[in-house]
Amino acid sequence: MEALEPLQLTLEETNVITDIFSQAITGELIGMSNFASLADTIDDPYEKMEAVEHANSERNHAEGFMHYAKKNGLKTNINLNSIYWGNVRKQFLSYAHKKNFIACLIIQEVMLESFAVAMYTDVAHALGGKAGDLFLRIAEEEKEHLEHSSDILRAALERNPEAFVNKFEEIHFNCMTILSEFTATTDLRGHCGVCNGDCMKGSLHHIGLDIETLRGNALALYAQSLDDIGIPGEKSIVWIARLPA
């Protein structure tokens, strides 16, 4: 698909692309809010500064998507309290309030970023043109966050492997369950509250995508991230097998 030119797109294509932008903007704003909340709760000045920096980076991503959508007449819908995004945020806040920096990093930088990097990359290849470039550039930046956090989490695992893996397991089931329901073939909890009309999952074929591949690639990157951190494969296979299908 060439550079996004709304006039050249069918209504179905425009609708699904609009929903993709709505989800991307909402996701980036959730990321921004997560890091802003984290900055508020941590004492270490360096960690605090890093959290603010990350919040700003997510804000820039959201702005990039919003700017593009506006310029191209996409009527996006932003809803931070939507069912899935809102629940992810609640999970994040529950750890942020306990000043659990590592747990926050796991949710934002491993779980959410794995999904963002994989999905943005697939969307970029499907859209092509300027929209594709935008998604690809942001995916690259999110990838850096993912890699950076892997280094920190690997070190945390080495300090106390058993406690780390147990904590990770708890967060996995609290948070990845929501993301798995969100990306299931059918909406397991009703309308997500972000898409304009019906769930966009059924319309992705209009731009050459399908939810199974998007979700599969996202889970693959998540599994790869767990490997990079050093979570034993015999654990992660059980974690993944026990997610909603």
């Binding site: 693959a220 599994a223 296979i237 993944i240 299908a245």
Partner: peptide, 21 residues
């Protein structure tokens, strides 16, 4: 339980991993 069709939608994507010792 997952059906074969549901399994096919997830597991081909999973990178190789150690399953048991």
């Amino acid at each position: 339980e997952l059906s074969i069709e549901q399994t096919k939608k997830v597991f081909p994507f999973i990178p190789p991993r150690e399953i048991y010792k």
